[in-house]
Every structure is written in structure tokens, then in C-alpha cells.
Write a protein that binds this DNA or RNA. Structure first.
Lengths: 233, 233
DNA sequence: AAGTGGTCTAGACCACTTG
DNA sequence: AAGTGGTCTAGACCACTTG
């Protein structure tokens, strides 16, 4: 199928709203009007309105109609930045220590996340990122070996895996999970923590047009690192 | 209309998953099977599966089938969501227990954050939000008394402070800081934690057109709550 | 080839809001 | 009474996955 009809209608409405041709709270054409205009069934017009409503762009009331919702209620500005840039911007020194870099059999969960066949090989890297020689992040990364065949040949003390991967397979999508955890003994050692303090753990799945590129687990001591997000409505 | 047929099917599937009768990644009956079993059209069965997929309970692959998704408490950093809505969307019960609600002299840091004169009064509320009677969040909030004079008269077991504040002074901006911390003894007691496990702490500053409305500190046990964010580029 | 989900149609009846 | 969104049907064709 070339392109779904409801997608065309969605794009049309979205364009109207983004160009301010339809203001906030303005009335949007009804299901019947859209069906007529786009020469589709009412169910297809409805699908477009429904999708945009769930997306937060429209709001609907039975008997009344469909209206443009208040804009930008959800704007993503959780920045998870390249750690090297972030440290340099603070005027500090960034060092990356490569703890390990090898090909391994994919752990089950990783294999599933990377959409690999069972027992496939993946590349695994483990780095400690330091700010002025103090460990700030432990980066455990699993990389799709099919998509990034030369991963093991890189020198990640010079260029972070994130930067390298962005060059090889530009990101189209990222998912983050943020948790508070107790670090393992091994993690404490690498992060030079003697008190098992709580850590932020960010699990990041990155996608490019060709597939799932990598899964990274980033562990940061709670006392040394925090995330910030800023939302404007 | 008494109750929508697709709601009945959704409830049936949700019950199967919550009772662990259907495990993670288990195959869910196909649209055709459900249509036959519930004596509805395929479109109606589809609607139930579709809703639960968007809700994150199921995942679907064309040609393969529909499966139980991995369950875990999830949220989004991108949206400022109401915790009550979030819990209800999972089909669970939300309870809010008001621990305290009073006027106090602003602690220095809070006074500065709220842009008040020294020694000004602020309203302080402390709530525990539960999901099916299990504490999920401890909410400590300081509110600008000049902007929200009737804060103390509200019943926050019925309406969350966030919802009330949004009505009084619509948000224009929010800042979040996300950290991993060790909970204090008092926090452990309120959250019914016996192991001092790491907690996510989200500090949220909210702004409206008229000024800084409130500063909230939200503490969530790491084992019960995590944040998720999704970025499309 | 058979089963799956994805899209789509042309109808239907309903509950709700407005004039 | 006319228009709106909400639910539902019984079909159809398609793309995708598996044996």
C-alpha cells in the first residue's frame, strides 16, 4: 500500500495547525466533512481525527465537534547529551577509559532488544567516562554487529561510541528508561565508589533507518550526576 | 449504550495478563479468534487489541500475531502527567493520602526558588500516592501562597495538587531535575520501604504566566517506578 | 497456502449538544 | 430536528510471516 489515506488526512490537519491556519480551540471539520472532502469513508476520516486526538493535537466532544487542542503540552527537552561535549562545556577535562571491547554471544535480553537471531554475535564495549579524572559514567554497550561491522576497530578513548555510531548509522529514534539502582560491586569498583551509593541508570535503545543499532546501559553515581529537563508549554 | 463490546474484550485480556494466566511474550488470541469467541465483528476485536497495544500492554507484528508486552511501571519525562491518570490508565486504583497540609515559613532554598521575600509564608503539602495501596510516590510540595491563596482548603485525596494548580494558574513552563538518592528514614517509613533502596527523586519547578507557582519534590522507590522517554528524530 | 495484522468501505443505530 | 462524535457490522483487499 502506497500511503494510508488516514495518514494523508492527518498530515493535512497537522499542517493546518502548525501553520497557525487553524488556531487553538478552532473547530476542525467533522468526520462527515472530511470524508466528503477526501473522498473516503467516515471510518477513515474518523481514524485520522482519533489518532490526532490521542496524540494530543485535537480534542473532541460528542455532539459538539472536534477542536484544536492547546498546543505543545508535550515537548521533549530531556537532553541526554554526548558526555564528552557536556564535560568540555563545563570547561573540564573528559577522559574515556576503555575497560573492554570484544565480540560475545548476545545475552538473551540483548539479542531480543537488538532483534537478532538467537545466539548471534554482538559487540560489547565497556567504558568509564571521567570528568577531571573522577569517574562520572559507566557505559556498557551492546552493538548490532551486522549493522556496525568495524566497531571493534575503533579507539573509543578518542571518540565516544555514541559519536561513532551516529556517523555510521544516523539515529532516527531513541528510547530511554531511567531508574534508580544500587550499583553492583563491579560497578562500584569501576566508578571508584566505596559506599554503594544509589546510581542513576539510563538504558538507551537507539534505532536507525536500517534497524536497532545498539543498547547502552549508562550508570552514574547519584552524587555526581543528574538529569535535567525543561518544558515550555 | 450499556457497555462497549470492545471494553469487555479489553477487560478480559487485561485480567488474563494481570492474573499471570498469560505470561510476558505469550501469544494473545488473534483478531479472528476473539471475534468468534465474543461474537463480534473483527473490527471490534481489533479495536480492543489496538487500544491495549497503544496502552503498552500488548505488542503486535504483522504476519506474526499479538503478544503480551513486558510489563513494568512506565511513564514519560516528556509529558507532565498526572499520577492519578497514569495509574488509572493501567487499570489500577490510585489513592492519595494527605500526610500534612499547612502554612510554614519558607525554607531559604524554597523562598529563593519561588522568588519570595525572605521569611515569607508558603503552603506546604505532603502526599503519598499509592497504586493499588502500594506507595508509589512521595510528593513534597511548596506552593506560592500569594498566587494560590486557597491551597489549604482543598481536599487533595480527591484531586491531586498538580491538577488543582493547573486549574488555578495554567502552567507555562516546568523544569525537572532527576536524581538517584538514598531515602531518609522518614521517607522510607512513608513509602513503606524497609531496605533503604535507591529512589528516583524528581524536583519539579512549575511556572505560570504570573510567576513561580510551586516547587515539588517527588520521591519514588527505584523498584516500583521508572521514567521512560521516547525521542523520534 | 494459510494465518496474521493493516487498511478501508458503506452502511447502521446510538447518545449527546445545539437551535 | 439536524449535526456531532461513539460504536458496530460484514464484508474486502493488502503486506507480511511461517511452514
Amino acid at each position: 500500500m502506497a500511503e494510508a489515506k488516514f495518514e494523508v488526512i492527518k498530515r493535512h490537519i497537522t499542517a493546518k495547525i502548525e501553520s497557525k491556519a487553524w488556531a487553538e480551540n478552532a473547530k476542525v471539520p467533522s468526520e462527515n466533512e472530511l470524508a466528503l472532502k477526501f473522498n473516503v469513508s467516515r471510518m477513515t476520516a474518523r481514524r485520522a481525527l482519533q489518532d490526532l486526538t490521542e496524540q494530543g493535537l485535537l480534542k473532541r466532544t460528542q455532539g459538539l465537534g472536534t477542536f484544536v487542542a492547546c498546543l505543545k503540552t508535550q515537548s521533549s527537552v530531556l537532553k541526554i547529551r554526548n558526555i564528552a561535549d557536556e564535560i568540555q562545556q563545563r570547561g573540564h577535562q573528559h577522559q574515556a577509559h576503555v575497560i573492554s571491547l570484544s565480540a560475545i554471544k548476545a545475552p538473551t535480553a540483548i539479542g531480543i532488544a537488538l532483534e537478532l537471531t538467537p545466539n548471534a554475535q554482538v559487540f560489547h564495549s565497556q567504558l568509564v567516562h571521567c570528568e577531571n579524572d573522577i569517574p562520572l559514567q559507566l557505559e556498557d554497550r551492546y552493538v548490532n554487529a551486522l549493522l556496525v561491522p568495524k566497531y571493534l576497530e575503533q579507539d573509543f578513548s578518542q571518540m565516544t561510541p555514541h559519536v561513532y555510531l551516529s556517523q555510521i548509522a544516523p539515529l532516527t529514534e531513541a528510547r530511554h528508561t531511567i531508574e534508580a539502582i544500587s550499583p553492583s560491586e563491579a560497578q562500584c569498583k569501576l566508578l571508584q565508589l566505596d559506599n554503594f551509593e544509589p546510581c542513576l541508570q539510563i538504558t538507551r535503545h537507539t534505532y536507525s533507518a536500517v534497524g536497532v543499532v545498539s543498547v547502552a546501559r549508562i550508570t552514574c553515581p547519584g552524587s555526581r550526576y543528574r538529569l535535567e529537563s525543561h518544558i515550555t508549554i
